[in-house]
């Protein structure tokens, strides 16, 4: 069985560099609820690939700039 993967994100940093975009604004742009954005930002929810791409599009960056992964040993 492969080792578990920990997914981290830079959403807080990206929001800061996007003129301190609010979680609500990001939620509206990505087509999700504010609660979901809060959960993703806190690492409490891993979004689907579709939502991950929508979040990346909202910032105008590639998905790898928003999300990264780490394999647990």
């Amino acid at each position: 069985m492969p080792n578990p993967i920990v997914i981290t994100n830079n959403i807080r940093k990206l929001r800061f560099f996007a003129n301190e975009m609010t979680q609500q604004e990001l939620a509206e742009k990505a087509g999700a609820s504010r609660q979901t954005i809060i959960a993703i930002e806190a690492g409490k929810y891993s979004p689907s690939l579709e939502l991950a791409f929508c979040i990346a599009d909202a910032f105008g960056v590639s998905i790898t700039e928003v999300f990264s992964h780490e394999v647990k040993e």
């Binding site: 939620a27 509206e28 087509g31 999700a32 979901t36 959960a39 979004p47 689907s48 579709e50 939502l51």
Partner: peptide, 8 residues
């Protein structure tokens, strides 16, 4: 906005 339901 508070009542939006999504994939989560």
């Amino acid at each position: 906005l508070e009542m939006v339901e999504d994939e989560r």
